[in-house]
């Protein structure tokens, strides 16, 4: 049973104020995106217009010159994020199953290594990784960047997936084996359906991270292969910024993780909120 503290007016008021403060940065972004020529200031950017959003989908506008069109960088982000999510999810569930079910000394150490890798500062190995990718002649390739991003996502994903599989009672699988099902069969037909919420946690977590990843593609990709995060970064030091166009770009680029999160939490419900995942 959970505690149900008394609902008070004061906490509600305090939280409302905090909520409004959290919204402030978005206000500028949204105002600038719908102004004709927005600036750093809130007011005086001309009337309401949708043209900046429309321009994104029609050639990208002059502000993207050199960085490829909006659609191209958006497509690259999608490739990287979806690719990483799919590979990570499939591979981590496969790996987590034996780690959960076939306990042995080796596997115990294996899990330690996994948890250890979870804390690895990826940024620290990017310079040698660049050198390594150049040597293997796989630099500036979206496919191999996905492989690298998958490797960075796997330790945490596997660790989470394992804790979800641990929660599936063995008896259910045993019944399936009695019916002549193989290990792979019981994984696919018994375990996986039971851990759909867990898989969603892994998938959303991986997608959100991969979608927003900046440093890895910044180092491993260039030119027309750049995802939206790198394109976005190129606006920071630019000489002549069209703030409205960049704000529209930023909004569209921010939507997929938000929408995905909302859809998936609605779908898998309460169990989603990290709890099972991180409390082991």
């Amino acid at each position: 049973m959970s505690s149900q503290p008394v609902v008070g007016k004061l906490p509600s008021a305090a939280m409302s104020v905090i909520g409004v403060i959290f919204l402030v940065p978005f206000v500028w972004l949204v105002v600038a995106a719908f102004q004709q020529h927005g600036s750093l200031e809130l007011a005086g950017g001309g009337g309401f217009t949708l043209s900046h959003f429309i321009n994104l989908f029609h050639g990208g506008g002059s502000f993207l010159e050199g960085g490829g069109s909006f659609l191209a960088s958006f497509g690259n982000s999608l490739y990287l994020a979806v690719g990483t999510t799919v590979l990570t999810t499939v591979i981590c569930v496969l790996a987590a199953y034996p780690l959960s079910r076939f306990g042995s000394r080796t596997q115990e150490y294996f899990v330690y290594v996994l948890v250890f890798l979870t804390g690895l500062p990826i940024i620290a190995i990017m310079i040698p990784t660049y050198d390594y990718f150049v040597t293997l002649d796989i630099i500036n390739s979206k496919f191999w960047t996905v492989c690298f991003m998958t490797a960075t996502a796997l330790p945490f994903a596997t660790w989470i997936a394992r804790s979800f599989i641990d929660a599936v009672p063995r008896e259910l699988e045993e019944a399936a084996w009695m019916d002549g099902m193989t290990r792979a069969g019981s994984l696919a037909h018994v375990v996986v359906p039971m851990i759909v919420p867990g898989i969603c946690v892994v998938a959303v977590f991986t997608f959100v991270n991969a979608w927003s990843d900046f440093f890895v593609p910044y180092i491993l990709l260039q030119g027309s292969n750049n995802p939206a995060s790198v394109t976005m970064y190129s606006f920071f030091g630019q000489y002549n910024i069209d703030y409205s166009a960049v704000a529209a770009f930023a909004i569209v680029y921010s939507l997929p993780p938000v929408v995905l999160y909302l859809v998936v939490t609605r779908w898998v419900g309460q169990g989603f909120a990290l709890r099972g995942a991180l409390k082991g």
Binding site: Y79, V82, G83, T85, V86, L87, T89, V90, D137, I138, I139, N140, S141, K142, F143, W144, V146, V192, P193, V196, I199, N225, W267
Partner: peptide, 25 residues
């Protein structure tokens, strides 16, 4: 749910392999 997830995985994998030739660009 599982079926739709499975479809998603298959579609995504196909897209991934289809448009991302492993060769450097």
């Amino acid at each position: 749910h599982l079926a739709s997830l499975g479809c998603l995985v298959v579609v995504a994998a196909t897209v991934l392999v289809g448009c991302g030739s492993p060769a450097a660009s």
